[in-house]
Nucleic acid binder design. Structure first.
Length: 936
RNA sequence: GGGCCCUUAGCUCAGUUGGUUAGAGCACUGCGUUUACACCGCAGGUGUCAUCGGUUCGAGUCCGGUAGGGCCCA
């Protein structure tokens, strides 16, 4: 018969074994046969599968998993799904590179299409070399690749030991998610929260799509001020009495043909006489007004700026507030449109514009500088500067602004009442840590417009509307045709609105489908509705929504967190969850944020395989929520050592108590032996010391250890309840090392009860009362420690649990203090147990060890006799542990002496050799005198 | 420019409502293979709490200024 408890313990290989066991036993399966009060539901971030995983994911998902495991052990039925965010630009980009294709919606579907590349070498395929394919072919490739990516991701999460219910997995692009996103959109449409508008829109010319405010970032870019001369019109000459040109300085001279006005600050004396008068644009000879506006900065450039259609968002503000005309020049592809804007009338102007038409911003700028220089309309050399420029966070060209029809959802950006409601909603979210709320409030209060949700892309949830086409072939955007909710999901490009048939598509008096899709966030803002079954499972929804926890990174408070609050507020009038746990960043050893672009990322799977999942989890769990953490393999080594210690200490406890002897033959025998050793506690139920027969733990040291453990359980529980997993781990870990280094050593000999080395102990054989006390205490403590460590070290703890306890530790109840206090004999006739006895005995043991350490001999060396000088207040405690101390220190004879009394001459039997008094002795610290080691 | 967080031992970090002589782990040094563990054990040294000022009987902790680092928003 093979032994069930390994001869030599190892943490290697536990991941595969236990993941298989948890899967087959359904350990983390959500049981919906419960009430809302019994459920703890988690709104897990769906990672972008086409992105790469990094240690930051491992870090933050571990935080969530620790909470999930704690709540599960607290008796909650944990609703913990995982999702994949697969729609959107990142997937499209990856598909383009991976397969060497790009989407051209004008092409027809090709049956059995084989892409030109498969996987490739990971390098980008140049846009020009990408094969154009139909929208449907493109989406099929997106789906094929995300399916592959999802497998990789799932393998990693499983290896890490994330306790999600894998039967609840969802994709943001799946038909059911699309239906939820479309239904929420349609309801917002009917309530007037979703609307479309023709408006200046931030536009990424690479991806040819609109982007939202939340997706912007400022990047510092080199630029140059060019000083251009505007000739005065007659009214301006008259007003100033001067024929001198007006000079403006601009970083975007190429937008000169789009100029509609000049603007200066109302208080700027230099330009006051010009306000309301006119100037003429150089080259294009368009008469434009000079206006005043407070946003014009007197110290920027020459203090007067040109307003264009549209150079930046300030131009949009000026255009709106000063009610200016438009002169659009920028095409959706980032090139100048072929026709000059209105107002350019002279032959010279149209000829000048023809030089720019079709050019990119970059070459148009170069050309117009040449033309201005030739015409002597530019003064001096360009003045180089560095300035912030708006980019799409995923883009690599500066954003342009074009006027397009787009869909919006109200988010408080243009409505003070809604804004106030959303700020108030944020106050009711329990942010962990609390200061993260400020990020939310800053963002909400700083919104400048509604949420732009339409994207001119392909792989995403279609905006589910059609438009009537009039007799002239023009779509009527004012009254969109919506599907009924039971038709969802729909694809307006493939499906037909009620009352029409396919032959009427894009025909006069027919209909046309909306081509745009929704932004990714418009779907992922609905993850609570998706996972909780809002659309199709009202019973589940009632049991899981509002959810308990939203874990996420601080970088997406403005996007994911806020947009989820918006959707839930609009649809349900309540918060989507109670708590928001915000994880910090991972910093590399140079204190820089780890990111792919900096090339300092570490492959997570490699990390898990090298150190072990429990070890990596330990590192992650050692960092508090909201606090940045250093990437620290040293911490992983400590975690690995802790996991090893759990295995080895368990082996000792089970061996010394004799439970191993029984457990080696069968689990049932082990469980029964544990029940016997603990005097009836620890039957099969996993109920700690619940049924402990009072009185079996009799020795002061054992009682003190359990009393201390009860305090640790309280502290750990309190910390985890407050989402402070770091504190919980720390108190358990610290006490566990004391348990191993001091308590185990002190009771070792007593627990063995004279058994010979290597002898299998019979748990049922008669033993001394002192041994029985130690064995019961050891067993109860071990079982408690395993449960305390289970959330952080799920693999090592379940491994040990399986040796001698039934079921999984992850379904065992979280320990509580009371049974431990009872087992410690809180009402014992000898008085309440004193947890301090453990640290006092530990200090005494260290004092004895020090004798041998300083003598440079083995700790096994016997001490023939020694005087132990102890602070008065600790004498009783040391005496209580004296037999254990003598055994652990291998002391044959020991006198315990009050350290103060010892100062009196003669008491310790020795006079100081130099005749000086003993006043240097510190009576608050233990020390030894007259130690005699046994030679050999 | 506005906001948030951080600065404690060589490193990574604790330090609760202000209260003894500011702690832990790692690293380092020395010793040791003991019926759990060499992926080990034992023993040992380690500080201008960034800085300046204020409140207080008392400040790592509270208040203000300064410097440095990180992040978010303009």
């Amino acid at each position: 018969m093979t032994s069930r408890i390994p001869e030599k313990a190892t943490v290697d290989g536990l991941e595969d074994r236990w993941n298989a066991a948890w899967e087959s036993q359904g350990t983390y399966r959500f049981n919906d046969d419960v009430t809302r009060e019994q459920v703890y539901s988690i709104d897990t971030p769906p990672p972008t599968v086409s992105g790469s995983l990094h240690v930051g994911h491992v870090f933050s998902y571990t935080h969530t998993d620790v909470i999930a495991r704690f709540q599960r052990m607290q008796g909650k039925e944990v609703f913990y799904p995982m999702g994949w965010d697969d729609n959107g630009l990142p997937t499209e980009r990856r598909v383009q590179n991976y397969y060497g294709v790009r989407c051209d919606p004008t092409l027809a579907y090709q049956e059995g299409f084989v892409p030109p590349h498969d996987g490739g070498d990971g390098k980008s395929v140049r846009a020009a070399d990408q094969q154009p394919i139909s929208r449907r072919n493109f989406i099929e490739l997106c789906e094929r690749l995300t399916e592959e990516d999802e497998k990789q991701f799932e393998a990693l999460w499983r290896h890490l030991g994330v306790s999600v219910d894998w039967s609840l997995t969802y994709q943001t692009i799946s038909p059911s998610s699309q239906a939820v996103a479309q239904q929420a959109f349609l309801r917002s449409l009917s309530r007037g929260e979703a609307y479309q508008a023709e408006a200046p829109t931030l536009w990424d010319v690479t991806f040819r799509t609109a982007v939202a405010q939340a997706e912007l970032e400022d990047r510092e870019q080199p630029g140059a001020y060019h000083r251009l001369a505007f000739e005065k019109a007659a009214d301006a000459e008259e007003a100033t009495g001067s024929f001198d040109s007006v000079y403006i300085e601009t970083t975007r001279p190429e937008l000169l043909p789009a100029c509609v006005a000049l603007v200066a600050h109302p208080d700027d004396e230099r330009y006051k006489p010009l306000f309301g008068k006119h100037v003429r644009t150089p080259l294009f000879d368009v008469e434009v007004p000079v206006l005043a506006h407070h946003l014009a900065s007197p110290d920027k450039g020459s203090g007067i700026a040109m307003i264009c259609t549209f150079g930046d968002i300030t131009d949009v503000t000026w255009w709106r507030e000063l009610q200016l005309p438009t002169r659009p020049v920028m095409g959706w592809d980032g090139r100048f449109v072929s026709e000059p804007p209105q107002g350019l009338e002279t032959p010279a102007a149209t000829a000048a514009y023809a030089e720019l038409a079709g050019k990119t911003v970059f070459s148009a700028k170069a050309r117009i500088i040449e033309m201005l220089t030739e015409a002597d309309l530019i003064e001096g050399e360009p003045r180089k500067i560095s300035h912030p420029v708006k980019f799409f966070e995923k883009g690599d060209k500066p954003l342009e602004i074009v006027t397009t029809r787009q869909w919006y959802i109200r988010n408080g950006g243009r409505d003070a009442d809604l804004n106030a409601e959303l700020v108030a909603a944020g106050k009711n979210v329990d942010f962990v840590p609390d200061f993260m709320r400020v990020r939310y409030e800053n963002w909400v209060k700083g919104l400048t417009g509604d949420w732009l949700i339409s994207r001119q892309r392909f792989f995403g949830v279609p905006i589910p509307v059609w438009y009537r086409v009039d007799g002239d072939g023009n779509p009527d955007f004012n009254s969109p045709l919506a599907p009924s909710e039971d038709m969802l999901p729909v694809d307006p490009q493939a499906d037909v609105p009620a009352g029409f048939d396919e032959s009427q598509r894009d025909q006069p008096n027919g209909f046309t489908g909306e081509k745009d899709i929704m932004d990714t966030w418009a779907t992922s803002s609905l993850t609570p509705q998706i996972v909780c079954g809002w659309r199709d499972n009202p019973e589940l929804f009632a049991k899981t929504f509002p959810m308990d926890l939203r874990p996420q990174g601080q970088d997406i408070i403005r996007t994911w967190l806020f947009s989820t609050v918006v959707r839930s507020h609009l649809e349900h009038g309540e918060l989507p969850w109670k708590h928001a746990a915000i994880s910090g960043w991972i910093l590399d050893p140079d204190r820089k944020k780890m990111s792919k672009s900096k090339g300092n990322v570490v492959t997570p799977m490699g990390l898990l395989e090298e150190h072990g999942s429990d070890a990596v989890r330990y590192w992650a769990a050692s960092a508090r929520l909201g606090t940045d953490a250093a990437f620290d393999t040293g911490m992983m080594k400590i975690g690995r050592r802790l996991a090893m210690k759990v295995l080895n200490a368990s082996k000792f406890v089970l061996g010394a108590t004799g439970i191993s002897t029984a457990a080696d033959s069968s689990l049932e025998a082990g469980v029964e032996a544990a029940a016997h050793v603990t005097g009836g506690a620890l039957r099969g139920s996993g109920d700690a010391a619940n049924d402990a027969v009072p009185g079996i733990v009799t020795e002061p040291l054992d009682r003190a250890m359990l009393a201390g453990l009860a305090e640790v359980v309280d502290a750990s529980t309190k910390a985890l309840t407050a989402y402070d997993h770091t504190k919980a781990l720390e108190v358990a870990e610290t006490y566990f090392w004391t348990f191993c280094d001091d308590y185990l050593e002190l009771v070792k000999a007593r627990a063995y009860d004279g058994a010979a080395p290597g002898e299998a102990i019979d748990p049922y054989a008669d033993c001394s009362r002192e041994a029985a006390s130690a064995r019961a205490a050891l067993t109860i403590a071990l079982e408690t420690f395993l449960r305390l460590f289970a959330p952080v070290l799920p693999f090592a703890t379940d491994e040990v649990w399986s040796w001698w306890r039934e079921g999984s530790v992850h379904r065992a109840p979280w320990p509580v203090a009371e049974p431990l206090s009872d087992a410690a004999g809180a009402t014992h006739s000898a008085g309440a147990p004193d947890p301090k006895l453990i640290s006092i005995a530990g200090a005494a043991l260290a004092t004895l060890r020090k004798i041998k350490s300083e003598a440079k001999v083995s700790q096994r060396t016997e001490i023939a006799s020694v005087d132990l000088l102890v602070p008065a207040a600790q004498v009783a405690a040391v005496n209580a542990a004296k037999p254990d101390l003598m055994a652990a220190g291998r002391v044959r004879a020991m006198q315990v002496i009050d350290a103060v009394t010892a100062l009196e001459p003669g008491v310790d039997g020795m006079q100081p050799e130099d005749g000086s008094p003993d006043e240097i002795a510190d009576t608050t610290v233990m020390r030894t005198e007259n130690a005699e080691l046994v030679q050999d």
